[in-house]
Design a protein around this nucleic acid. Structure first.
Ligand code: MN
Ligand code: MN
Ligand code: ZN
Ligand code: ZN
Lengths: 134, 134
DNA sequence: TTACAATTAGTAATTATTATCAAAACTGGA
DNA sequence: TCCAGTTTTGATAATAATTACTAATTGTAA
């Protein structure tokens, strides 16, 4: 059985791609509601899961917080702000991560990996400076 | 103000170290109850947070699931099983992760990073094989 | 059309965690 | 040792994010 592209799926997908951000289900729900006011939050959750399963979008499960969905399915890593939880894309060298060591780690069969750089975004750095002045 | 080592904190810490696993709050709660039957789950949550804040234990926030706490505070990475959610330690080469590229990524000030290898553990691989036979 | 399957909206239930708060335990002087 | 103030605890309520349920709606394909 293959994916059936319903109206709600189409709009969810379109709005995520359009945003070029890493949105959570409820953020996307707010955007989608503008075009489809009667859509249910459960439908957004359900379809985000289905769309990511189908490989049309990415799913980020970051640091115990809300899941975020990615408009970009190509291979890349992320950096996120511990203050405001904003997520940005990151393209860094990945050598040293494909060694035999990993391939045979502890008898696991490896399916992938997640690299998350953690830090404070420029906006939050500025805010922190202003706070200090007070 | 520095950390006051209460009975409950001592036992929580002791049981985590003893386990040599990456336990969740409720798993640890079960262990601690054996020695302190009247302890509350909230106390376990509260103190795990405090102990990790104090640097006595590590905190893993993995893949949108439950938090897990680490008996080992030295630098290392993790591998986890997508099937049973078991977490194991991993010591891999980290070169390629300390480049200037990262240090200046998107204007962020970097505080750290998390690398998670994802896969299927030996136990779950075996189980999957047995399932197939049926 | 008509039956069968898939999807939806709305809502309830669940899971993990955090907040609240009165009671208990601990602290450092008098 | 006692006391007043501070911290911590246990019990429970509240919250946040997600998932489950279900009847109604929609799509499909003969
Ligand atoms: Mn991305
Ligand atoms: Mn570890
Ligand atoms: Zn920020
Ligand atoms: Zn496993």
């Amino acid at each position: 059985m293959q994916l059936r592209m319903t109206n709600q799926r189409e709009i969810i997908l379109r709005e995520l791609k359009k945003s070029r951000q890493h949105l959570s289900a409820d953020e996307l729900y707010d955007k989608v509601k503008k075009y489809m006011p009667r859509i249910s939050l459960a439908t957004v959750y359900r379809n985000l899961e289905i769309l990511s399963e189908a490989g049309l979008i990415g799913k980020l499960e970051i640091s115990g917080r809300q899941k975020r969905f990615d408009y970009d399915v190509t291979d890349h890593d992320h950096i996120y702000c511990v203050v405001c939880h904003r997520v940005d894309n990151l393209n860094i060298e990945r050598q040293g991560l494909h060694t035999k060591e990993i391939k045979s780690a502890k008898g696991y069969s490896i399916t992938g990996y997640r690299l998350e750089i953690v830090g404070i975004c420029p906006v939050c750095q500025k805010k922190a400076k202003k706070e200090k002045k007070k």
